[in-house]
């Protein structure tokens, strides 16, 4: 496959940045999107150019490191798929592909396609934890969890914190991320002690990081590589309302 890529190049935080056009040739349709970029980078290195910086780690869709806007869609055209699991067979020979970093004030560009997602860590630090009793391991069935709750909590817990929800949101909001964290802990008995303070503190942290507010547009859930449902935002809102004046 021969492709024309237009890639966001930015030397660092202080650089203004620009779209740069590259031609890549002989790409296998079975290559992943990141492998396609690897091929381009090897060529750039051999040519003495600066390779394109992008985040990646596990390359099996579970770490949440990779992520870029591909033709304006977070993680590209395939639903519920991370960039590393997106394969070139979903593109046509001769396509032009635009590649941009996540765009959000809270996710400043470090270099090229790499953004700093530490803001998510600070939102987690504000309340995304439980008071875990330390000491000997408790009996496995000491705290029964209804199956439906366990399943719903697990679905929320599949969030990998990649930031696609923020990148896709017209308001640059991280509500789907925060809602997933609030739901996955709030649905389980172990998450109840902090349930009230968690939601308030995490929203406070999210606002402080400069994320926008939710307008229920649903762009986030459409691009989420883990298919986190939009309904979790309603759960967050209900928890927040119950604790707003508490």
């Amino acid at each position: 496959m021969d492709l024309k890529l237009r890639v966001w190049r930015q030397k660092g935080a202080g650089d203004k940045g620009r779209m740069v056009t590259y031609q890549v040739t002989g790409i296998s349709p079975d290559a992943s999107f990141l492998e396609m970029l690897d091929v381009l980078n090897e060529k750039l290195i051999l040519d003495g150019d600066d390779p394109i910086a992008f985040d990646h780690d596990c390359r099996e869709g579970i770490c949440g490191m990779c992520g870029m806007m591909i033709n304006g869609v977070a993680h590209g055209p395939e639903r519920a798929t991370t960039t590393c699991q997106l394969h070139m067979r979903h593109f046509a020979d001769g396509d032009t592909i635009d590649i941009e970093p996540w765009r959000a004030a809270a996710f400043p560009v470090v270099k090229d396609l790499v953004v700093d997602r530490s803001a998510f860590d600070r939102v987690i630090q504000a309340g995304g934890y439980i008071t875990a009793p330390t000491g000997a391991a408790p009996d496995a069935h000491a705290t029964p969890v209804p199956k439906a709750d366990a399943d719903a909590a697990f679905e929320a817990a599949t969030c990998i914190g990649c930031g696609a929800c923020v990148a896709a949101c017209p308001n640059g909001s991280s509500m789907l991320f925060t809602a997933a964290k609030v739901a996955h802990l709030g649905l389980l008995p172990q998450g109840q002690p902090e349930r009230g303070t968690r939601v308030v503190e995490m929203i406070e942290a999210q606002d402080a990081e400069g994320f926008g507010g939710c307008t229920n547009a649903g762009e986030c859930t459409a691009v989420c590589p883990k298919g986190i449902p939009l309904s979790l935002i309603g759960r967050l809102n209900a928890d927040y309302r119950a604790n707003l004046l508490a």
């Binding site: 237009r6 806007m69 941009e100 004030a105 308001n171 909001s173 926008g212």
Partner: peptide, 12 residues
């Protein structure tokens, strides 16, 4: 706030 949350717009 939403406007401030995305200071750089997407090209595509």
């Amino acid at each position: 706030r939403a406007r401030r949350a995305r200071p750089v717009r997407y090209a595509h």
